[in-house]
Amino acid sequence: MKKIHLILLVLIAVAIAVLLTFLKGASTYDTIETARNKPGKFVHLMAKLDKTQPVEYDAIKNPNYLSFTAIDTTNVSIKVVYHNPKPDMFELSEKLVLKGKYTDGYFDCQEIQTKCPSKYKDDMNAAKKNLQANTK
């Protein structure tokens, strides 16, 4: 066997190992049900804010504590705790991507991504609305 083939094999083995460790460390998109089944594992939860339940946030008492109820498409809900200030447009969001872990009966969230009618995109729907408002 040529040396170059040997090195090739080693490098490919390393590449495969790298990708496998990546997959092991990779997170998953989960529903609330499946997230409950793997406590302590970092997951992405796709849900939305349950507006029928109270949102607990008092900026004066503790600006870094937000607690609310999230509900997903399968209608399962869960209490979420977020140790950061409340994100902008939180109540207006259509969808939330909650990154964190399930622990002791609640979802310990590290990062909230709010999916709003986007401000970065050239949102054509928003543009249409603007147009309608401006031409009235």
Partner: peptide, 18 residues
């Protein structure tokens, strides 16, 4: 990959570090 194989792999906790 998620779309093609119907998997639900998400980026890891610290995507940049990966």
């Amino acid at each position: 990959i998620n779309k093609l194989f119907g998997s639900s792999i998400a980026p890891p906790e610290d995507a940049e570090f990966s």
